[in-house]
């Protein structure tokens, strides 16, 4: 069964994502900062990661960096969900290996769920990280 790791520090966003993904039949786990996320990935490799950027302690870029280092993690699809809308941020995240970037307030949650399905049902392949 596909499992999804939500990395997000805002409780209400975790809940919204969790409810929708569970309704689609996915298994969902969450982490509230970068360090916790890396620890959880280490214990159990998820099928896909939904990743926030700005979080306390260690941010989303840290997670992207860790994923890149580990050959086993390289191919996990990562969709960044952030409210940082600057071009430079988006570019940096994509360069660091994110597969997609959503500015949260500008996309309905349904779009995010559809994107998750695209990756997990093989309609879209995650790009390989260098």
């Amino acid at each position: 069964m596909n499992s999804i790791l939500i990395v997000e520090d805002e409780d209400f966003l975790i809940r919204a994502l969790e409810d929708n993904l569970t309704a689609e039949g996915y298994m969902v786990d969450f982490a509230i900062n970068g360090e916790e996320a890396v620890a959880k990935i280490g214990k159990k490799k998820p099928s896909l990661i939904l990743l926030d950027i700005l979080m306390p302690k260690s941010d989303g870029f840290y997670v992207l960096g860790e994923l890149k280092k580990n050959p086993e993690w390289k191919l996990i699809p990562v969709i960044v969900l952030s409210n940082l809308g600057e071009d430079t941020m988006i570019k940096q995240a994509l360069e660091m290996g994110a597969d997609d970037y959503f500015v949260k307030s500008q996309h309905p949650i349904q779009e995010v769920i559809e994107k998750v399905k695209d990756y997990l049902e093989g309609r879209k392949a995650a790009k390989s990280r260098p």
Binding site: E10, S105, I109
Partner: peptide, 10 residues
């Protein structure tokens, strides 16, 4: 944006 996106998604 964070609270607004939370409201939106909920």
């Amino acid at each position: 944006r964070t609270p607004l996106s939370g409201t939106k998604w909920l």
